[in-house]
């Protein structure tokens, strides 16, 4: 749709700025991906989310 950024594009742009936190989170899941339970990597995820929220606000 011209003249309008889709929400997913905004989202993708903000997430792209947090690749470091994303990779830390990914490594945490990867460490034992046969045994993943709820909030296994909560601290890493919260850092990632914080970074994403900051990046999303800036624009």
């Amino acid at each position: 749709m011209p003249g309008r950024t889709r929400p997913i594009d905004k989202f993708a742009g903000a997430v792209a700025k947090c690749s470091k936190e994303g990779s830390v989170y990914g490594k945490c899941i990867m460490a034992d991906y046969n045994n993943v339970y709820k909030d296994k990597c909560l601290t890493e995820f919260l850092k990632l989310k914080e970074c994403y929220l900051a990046a999303a606000k800036k624009r």
């Binding site: 989202f11 997430v15 690749s19 936190e21 994303g22 990779s23 989170y25 990914g26 490594k27 899941i29 990867m30 991906y33 995820f45 990632l48 989310k49 994403y52």
Partner: peptide
Amino acid sequence: LLAAEGIYREL
């Protein structure tokens, strides 16, 4: 989605 992006990239 946010979590899946990180995992996809790592895995």
